[in-house]
Design a protein around this nucleic acid. Structure first.
Length: 669
DNA sequence: TTGCGATCCATTTTT
DNA sequence: TGGATCGCAA
């Protein structure tokens, strides 16, 4: 089953190991085999932890462990993201971290916090005559935390391109703006403390800093595991390294990664870090996996070529264990509509032609946005699909509305939740809500708050709701039922005809919430892992569906037939990456590499010659960018012809043509 | 101060 | 496309 290289890695019996594994070289398989090997050696499954950077790959590994390790008792092996792992450490050691009633906030909440703060801050300071966008502050702050670097360094790094594009000097700007940045960040930190909030970055920082400063606690916690297996190591950023470093002494690390697939530089990951692994991690070794078991040689030839064109020398030349197959197709389309149309046609015919199932087809795009037209075509052609990487249910407005009162109960200091809850009612806007909050939120006893609410000018229904759920902090499900009961009418006014659909989401949520023993648990769980991301749009969750995904979410996935959308400059690489310099372009190239290497049998690379968004595509005379100079022998080029009937075009897109005969169809029997 | 309608705008990637 | 923001009327 395992080849020599994989076996060597799996049987490793030193302390720490880094496995440099090319795309499709059996990374996941090796991790799973490693876990199996350890269990067979007598290691308690509970002492084995698998950590990954994204939810998708964490989930994937656990699923495969369940299906592939039958006969071995793998129960207890956990697969988590860095965030959910650290969250659990925090939760299960309340005496170490001293976190009682807190609320885990997501990016939207974070944004609201900054909005509130910067409103107050910037009003009092008149001498701001330069642009300070709080989105920049958020980014810089997060980047600094994730790279464990100083504010100044993070500002210089993140703001350089922005300054250059307006002809400003970065150093000078940083000098001028640094005070405001630190003021805003300080205010945000204060705000978080006051509201008992923690955000994504805090989860990691709390664990890393907490354990670094408390040796006793570090030992105690590190002893919970003997083996930590880390997937997608190339995406690990310095903060995550710091977390891992807390376990160097007491655990064995087994890290798997591929520098050519590093696509999270924007989150502070440095793909070079993997090269210095053996220097940074004490008592560690390195091994390689170089045989690809996923794709045909033709697909690898193209992928290898893309990587070889990079000025950064990746020492990668994958060879296919599966031998030869069909050449990848380079599809040349006129515009995005033809592209979407052709992709969906190909998906439909793949079933007859290759006997593919829906789920053997995967459509990949650089951005979420790029998938929209294909999604529309899937709907039009009745192709079942799932979208990976979309906004979770927790992000949608109606769910946040419904959860707000629960958040108040779980954490009465949660100002954002109060605000959201109060502003839902008629005639209460931001100003009145703030007034009410300052009257009501005097201590963190929810019953007292509810009592004070009685005196405020708030609809009876709202008071009743709060009174009803005040004691339900350990029963999120029933609390949601109450919300539906008391707020249904108001929601109907707000969402009008949409309400019937949206209501279903909340009902689903209510059922799922039965698994959570407290509201803060429930909120944290779905912020960290919005399992319900697609249930709202596709009423039925279909096992066999075409996969539409961003490339970032597709890491670790594979499919027989892969369609990569819009491989053109300004789109791929994106305009933004092109502006921000060669490092970003190389990251885009790695992104393309990840996309191409997802394909097992058939690979279609789409290119668009005219765009609806910008005419600049052709101005440079280039049709593609990464594909410039592509040797003819690597691909078969196909010019996509315009669909003639039922054409899906700019004009017909919003009012898809109705077949008049069908519209008047009637059963006269 | 709230709430609605109109207009403009812009589009990475994840936890 | 729809989102977010702005201005105006109640």
């Amino acid at each position: 089953m395992l080849n020599e290289q994989q076996k060597a890695a799996v049987d490793f019996d030193g302390k720490h190991l880094l496995v440099l594994a090319g795309a499709g070289s059996g990374k996941t398989k090796t991790i799973i085999a490693r876990a199996a090997h350890l269990i067979e050696e007598g290691v308690d499954p509970k002492k084995i932890l698998i950590v990954s950077f994204t939810r998708k790959s964490a989930r994937e590994i656990i699923e495969r462990i369940k299906t592939e390790l039958d006969g071995i008792d793998s129960d207890g092996v956990k697969g988590q993201t860095f965030h959910s792992w650290c969250m659990e450490i925090i939760k299960s050691n309340p005496n170490v971290f001293n976190m009682k009633s807190y609320t885990l906030i997501d990016e939207d909440d974070k944004e609201s916090c900054f909005k509130l703060i910067s409103g107050k801050l910037f009003k009092t300071d008149e001498d701001i005559n330069f642009n300070i966008d709080f989105h920049d502050i958020i980014e810089v702050y997060s980047f600094a935390l994730n790279t464990c670097s100083s504010l100044t360094d993070a500002m210089k790094f993140k703001l350089r391109q922005k300054c250059e594009s307006v002809g400003a000097d970065v150093d000078e700007f940083v000098m001028l703006a640094k005070d405001y940045y630190s003021k805003a960040i300080k205010a945000y930190i204060e705000f978080k403390k006051k509201n008992h909030f923690i955000d994504y970055d805090d989860i990691l920082s709390i664990v890393a800093n907490g354990l670094a400063s408390n040796e006793e606690a570090r030992r105690h916690i590190a002893k919970q595991w003997d083996y930590i297996l880390v997937d997608e190591m190339q995406d690990t950023n310095p903060l995550q390294y710091k977390v891992l470093s807390m376990f160097y002494d007491d655990c064995h690390l087994f890290c798997v990664g591929d520098d050519a697939q590093s696509i999270y530089a924007f989150r502070g990951a440095d793909f070079n870090a993997i090269h210095s692994f053996t220097e940074v991690v004490p008592d560690s070794q390195k091994q390689k996996l170089t045989v690809n078991y996923r794709s045909t040689q033709e697909i690898l030839d193209l992928s290898n070529w893309v990587l070889k064109m990079s000025p950064l020398g990746y020492d990668k030349e994958l060879t296919a264990a599966n031998g030869h197959g069909k050449k990848p197709n380079l599809m040349v389309c006129d515009n995005e509509y033809d592209e979407a149309n052709d992709v969906t046609d190909k998906i439909q015919s793949s079933r007859k032609e290759f006997g593919s199932k829906w789920k053997d087809n995967m459509v990949l795009s650089r951005s979420m946005f790029g998938l929209r037209l294909v999604e529309a075509q899937c709907i039009a052609k009745k192709i079942p699909y799932v979208v990976y990487g979309g906004v979770g249910l927790m992000q949608s407005r109606h769910v946040r509305d419904a959860v707000a009162p629960l958040r108040v109960v779980a954490n009465p200091k949660d100002e954002l939740a109060w605000l959201r809850f109060l502003m839902l009612w008629k005639n209460i806007g931001e100003v009145s809500a703030s007034k009410i909050i300052s009257n009501v939120m005097k201590d963190d006893d929810i019953d007292k708050c509810v009592a004070r609410l009685k005196k405020e000018n708030v609809p009876e229904e709202a008071k009743k709701l709060m009174k009803d759920i005040a004691g339900m902090s350990t029963d999120p499900s029933s609390a949601l039922s109450k919300v539906l009961e008391h707020m249904g009418k108001r929601f109907k006014e707000k969402y009008k005809t949409e309400w019937e659909d949206r209501k279903k989401d909340i009902e689903v949520l209510r059922d799922v919430a039965k698994n959570n023993s407290s509201i803060s648990d429930f909120v944290a769980a779905y912020v960290l892992d919005p399992k319900l991301e697609t249930t709202l749009k596709n009423q039925e969750v279909n096992e066999d569906s075409v996969i539409l995904s961003t490339i970032h979410s597709a890491k670790g996935l594979e499919a027989e037939n892969v369609y990569v959308l819009r491989v053109n400059p300004y789109s791929f690489p994106s305009t933004r990456a092109m502006q921000s310099g060669p490092e970003s372009i190389e990251e885009e190239r790695r992104c393309l590499y990840v996309a191409l290497t997802r394909a097992k049998e058939h690979l279609y690379v789409y290119t668009i010659s005219k765009s609806m968004h910008t005419d600049s595509y052709n101005q440079s005379g280039k049709v593609t960018y990464f594909l410039d100079g592509l040797p003819d022998k690597l691909v078969d080029t196909v010019v996509v012809k315009k669909p003639n009937k039922n054409s899906f075009s700019r004009d017909s897109y919003n009012n898809s043509p109705i077949d008049i005969d069908k519209a008047f169809d009637f059963n006269f029997d």
